[in-house]
């Protein structure tokens, strides 16, 4: 078992260090024909807000070469409807559910955390922060989630704020830190007049395999130094990528939107990580040896 919230009164033990990233897997069952859920460590839900939110207007995806930008505005049916519709599913799932909360105001986060604390199947919260939050605002959101509910709180840190927020939020009481939300990016998109003569642009979250080296950079700087488990997220596209994250000190990996192309990547990563787990008596030596080699290279 991997303990994702060692400092929390109930903890958040998971059997396998793999889960889908928020916003990529729905609320639990959408992929049940293609993914063996029992092989995963947990499910992370799509972002949930206390009140319903509508989708963003305009173009929502731009694809270019090996990467793509998504801008959905994080639509959400609202917490009550999510609990009503997904709650019965969560009860049946063979793995714990981590609900990803869209962090807006502390009072909303607190209320959502309190509601979710009594929902069967839900074993943790992941707080999604926007890039523009100050540390004090982020800390207040974290405090609201932790104090109003009794679930472990993971904080997902925006790509551009890792150095600034990750260590301080870990100190402020986050049970685990997810590194990282996708970077914001702008893509020129097809269209406009006369065969694309007039350029249009779209801004959104960037996904693609090129995020992976950025993730490794963040892990090499922070995993093992935060004092809480780190969840790696960004551009992981193979079991080897996932292993590299664990070697650099991540406790768990999340597969992001790349799983839309290969949903069963979740299972192949899970199998590979389970198989690669060293025998208990050699585990420490192997990992520290690997880490030592990696640190020397870095």
């Amino acid at each position: 078992m991997i303990e994702l919230a060692p400092n929390h009164k109930y903890g958040l033990p998971i059997a396998v260090p793999v889960m889908p990233a928020s916003g990529t897997f729905g609320y639990g069952e959408a992929y049940h024909d293609l993914v063996d859920l029992s092989l995963l460590g947990a499910i992370v839900t799509n972002p949930v807000s206390l009140r319903p939110r509508r989708a963003a207007h305009g173009q929502r995806i731009g694809v270019r070469a090996d990467h793509f930008v998504v801008h959905t505005g994080w639509p959400s049916p609202g917490l009550h409807r999510v609990i009503r519709e997904a709650g019965p599913v969560w009860r049946r799932l063979p793995v714990p559910v981590i609900v990803h909360l869209l962090a807006a105001r502390p009072v909303d986060v607190g209320r959502a955390a309190a509601h979710l604390s009594g929902v069967r199947g839900v074993r943790g919260l992941e707080l999604g922060l926007t890039e523009d939050l100050s540390f004090a605002e982020a800390r207040d959101l974290l405090a609201a989630a932790a104090e109003e509910g009794d679930l472990p709180v993971i904080v997902k840190v925006p790509f551009s704020r890792v150095d600034d927020l990750a260590p301080r939020l870990a100190q402020a009481g986050a049970d685990a830190i997810t590194l990282m939300s996708p970077p914001r990016a702008v893509l020129p998109v097809a269209g406009g007049e006369a065969g694309g003569q007039v350029a249009r642009f779209m801004r959104g979250r960037l996904y693609g395999v090129a995020l992976f080296p950025l993730l490794l950079n963040a892990l090499s700087r922070w995993a093992g130094k935060l004092g809480v488990p780190v969840i790696a997220c960004g551009g992981i596209a193979s079991p080897e990528d996932a292993l590299a994250c664990l070697t650099l000190g991540a406790a768990v990996v999340q597969i992001d939107a790349l799983l839309w192309r290969v949903p069963w990547l979740l299972n192949s990563v899970a199998r590979a990580l389970v198989q690669s787990q060293p025998q208990p008596d050699t585990e420490q030596d192997d990992v520290s040896a690997d880490q030592g080699a990696m640190e020397a290279n870095l």
Binding site: T24, A30, L34, A55, V70, T72, A257, W260, R261
Partner: peptide, 21 residues
Amino acid sequence: VPMPCGVGVCDICRVTTRHGE
């Protein structure tokens, strides 16, 4: 419309109808 996931998880294909999105 673009439909990258096909199973209702990505929210990219949302359309507005008189019954909501």
